[in-house]
């Protein structure tokens, strides 16, 4: 009887863990699970730059809608050459990467950004060939 109840408890715990994992991965903005597989290009005007922990982001104005473009952690982003000195609010930007699977959500994760004619590959191993 003791064995049976322990097994039942393990099953319940496993079930709860599964549900938790599924709900987390569905909403995850870390990693790539929340993005579409195909590459996506966004062109707009920078309305905000954040280079810091836990990861860098750009806010990009596209015809009045503000997109959140997620970049890499600050160490990786600055190693790619993208720092607060090379871009400013008002600059035109092209971001290439993967957009959110949720079609209504103006959010993407960039692997490459182009500002002032310079190209910065924040995730070089993921850049489309």
């Amino acid at each position: 009887m003791a064995l049976f109840s322990r097994r039942a408890a393990l099953k319940t715990a496993g079930g709860i863990a599964m549900i938790a994992l599924m709900s987390v991965s569905a909403a995850a903005h870390h990693g790539w699970s929340w993005t579409e597989d195909g590459f996506f290009e966004l062109k707009g005007t920078i309305s905000g730059i954040y280079i810091g922990n836990p990861h860098a982001t750009l806010d990009v104005d596209v015809e009045g809608e503000t997109w959140r473009v997620e970049l890499a952690p600050p160490s990786r982003t600055t190693a790619a050459g993208f720092t607060e000195e090379v871009a400013a609010v008002g600059d035109e930007v092209t971001a290439i990467g993967n957009r959110s699977r949720e079609s209504t959500e103006p959010r993407m994760k960039a692997v490459r950004i182009v500002v002032r004619g310079e190209t910065y590959d924040v995730y070089p191993y993921r850049v489309p060939s």
Partner: peptide, 13 residues
């Protein structure tokens, strides 16, 4: 400083 740190942030985290 913490915002830009490479080691401190993951340690605090």
């Amino acid at each position: 400083a913490l915002k830009a740190s490479f080691i401190a942030y993951p340690l605090v985290n």
